[in-house]
Design a protein around this nucleic acid. Structure first.
Lengths: 155, 155
DNA sequence: AAATAATATTTGTATGTACAACACAAGACA
DNA sequence: TGTCTTGTGTTGTACATACAAATATTATTT
């Protein structure tokens, strides 16, 4: 019988956020796995449906992932015939395929079900509010990181 | 100048949490990198200082990482001579080394600085409150996931 | 005591993600 | 015109993390 001992981790925002993020990932994977898509790939696809011809740079901005990660995701989606790449000079356009268009509504549904799932668990307004607070905190941290980068460049 | 278009991601708790977690990771890495430690390794070390002889199972519980991940972390720390493994029958005890004991206070300091850093960015009470809410939400999600697992086993 | 079950840890393997280095196209400018 | 610079994408490589299977050790049952 271990007493669930308190320690420095329990009050650490960094730690708690990480753990929470991994738990939510599991929840999300449960929704998307029947489609044989990871949540990240599914999100990318939805953005492509929304703006056919969208490029890696914009995807990177929207998903807040590095360009190299986006390249890897597109590689994998191309291999699974879910998107098509079209090179336009130095830039690249990404389009959905027939196959992925057929899945569009089920992907959107899975996303909605994910939303319903955690809204049920956390309470809808609570979940929404938490999401907003996290998004806000994220902006503040991003700003701080950018400023720090700038400072380092100076000296 | 792109208008930062709204989309389904902006209100998604899962997405926002993921992104926030990655940003905080960067903040944490900035604190720990002078010690040539990743934040996760540093956390594990602190737990080992706190309870020399602690085993993988308990570390797994406290850090909320799978046992296999813990094994990999310990492998890496052993390679860097920061902990020692001692096998006791079917279980394993992990001890700090002289080398890591020498680093103990700087590791603790880095952790504290991380805390100060994001407290400054987010406001101390806000950060604390956010951390608590996330921890709470995490418990609720974990419970939901466990119940789901149970349901699946039934059918 | 042999057989079996339960527990703890490790290994093989796969995915997500990042960083640094590279390639290449497009403009700028001499 | 030819070179420099900048913008955009991709590749090589590395790390964190997980799952499922293998292994080893202890506990339980027959």
């Amino acid at each position: 019988m271990e007493t669930p001992k308190q320690n420095f981790l329990d009050t650490c925002l960094f730690f708690n956020t990480n753990v929470f993020s991994r738990q939510l990932l599991k929840l999300a994977e449960a929704q998307f796995s029947p489609l044989k898509l990871s949540p990240a790939h599914a999100s990318l696809l939805l953005l492509v449906f929304d703006a056919p011809g969208i490029g890696p740079k914009e995807l990177s901005r929207l998903l807040q992932l590095t360009p190299s990660t986006i390249t890897r995701f597109i590689d994998s989606l191309v291999k699974n015939k879910l998107v098509r790449r079209k090179s336009q000079g130095k830039s690249v356009c990404v389009f959905p395929t027939e196959k992925s268009k057929d899945m569009q509504s089920s992907i959107a549904l899975a996303y909605k079900n994910l939303y319903l799932r955690y809204s049920k668990v956390l309470g809808a307004t609570n979940a929404m509010d938490l999401s907003n607070r996290i998004a806000l905190a994220n902006e503040q941290v991003m700003k701080a990181l950018k400023d720090q980068e700038y400072d380092e460049t100076l000296f």
